[in-house]
Amino acid sequence: MDDDTHKLALYDNTITPGFGTDESYSTSGEISGTGYTAGGAAIASATFTVVTSGGVYAVWDGNNVQWEASTLTGVRGAIAHADAETPKRLILGIDFGQAYQTNDGVLLVSFNASGIGRINVVSP
């Protein structure tokens, strides 16, 4: 998870992602607009660690992602994917709970301080 190039792609409310072993990144439902490049933006400084405080957790983390000077509409969620793999494998999906838009502004996806993805491997 930390040896690959990961990206975060934005989607509208029409996407139905699949996360099975044969599922890969799809452009169906992907947002388009000023300031956005198809495939999404890189998740910089991606890391995969095991945390042993308060249990045992597998944690995938990285820097927040933003699109500056963007004009986007209907942004309902995002898909993180392994961009360097063939096919590009889906990692996780994020539902924003509502659609967002920008008008020559900044769209910032700010990840939780506990990590982008956190799985409890062993209960305390």
Rank of each mutant, 00 (worst) to 15 (best):
Y11H: 04
D61I: 02
G105W: 00
L8V: 11
P124A: 07
I79S: 12
Q98M: 11
R76T: 06
Q101H: 11
I15Q: 09
G33N: 02
S45P: 03
Y57I: 09
G115L: 01
T37Q: 10
A42L: 13
I94N: 05
G97I: 00
T73D: 09
G117W: 10
D22W: 00
D61M: 09
V121P: 00
I15Y: 08
R89K: 15
H81A: 06
L107I: 10
G93I: 02
P124T: 02
E85M: 08
G93K: 04
D4L: 06
D4P: 01
R76A: 15
A78V: 03
D3P: 12
A99C: 00
G54I: 09
T14D: 05
E30I: 07
N13F: 06
Q101Y: 06
N112W: 14
A58G: 05
L90Q: 13
V50M: 09
F111C: 06
T73C: 07
R89P: 00
P124F: 01
S26F: 01
G54T: 12
V65D: 14
A99F: 06
A41G: 11
E68M: 09
G74L: 11
A78M: 03
H6T: 15
V65H: 11
P87M: 08
I31E: 04
Y100L: 10
D2M: 08
A78E: 01
S70T: 03
I15N: 09
Q101C: 05
D12S: 01
L90W: 02
S24V: 07
E23Y: 05
E30G: 02
G40I: 03
F111I: 04
G40Y: 06
D3Q: 14
L108Y: 03
F96E: 04
D83Q: 10
S70Y: 05
Q101W: 07
T27P: 05
T14I: 07
A78P: 04
T71N: 11
K88F: 01
W60V: 14
T49W: 01
L90V: 15
G62E: 03
D22Y: 00
D12A: 01
S114T: 15
N63Y: 04
G97N: 03
F48I: 13
G93R: 02
K88S: 12
T102V: 04
G97C: 00
A80N: 12
T71G: 11
Y36V: 08
A99Y: 06
G55R: 07
F19Q: 07
T86I: 11
D83V: 02
T21C: 10
I31R: 04
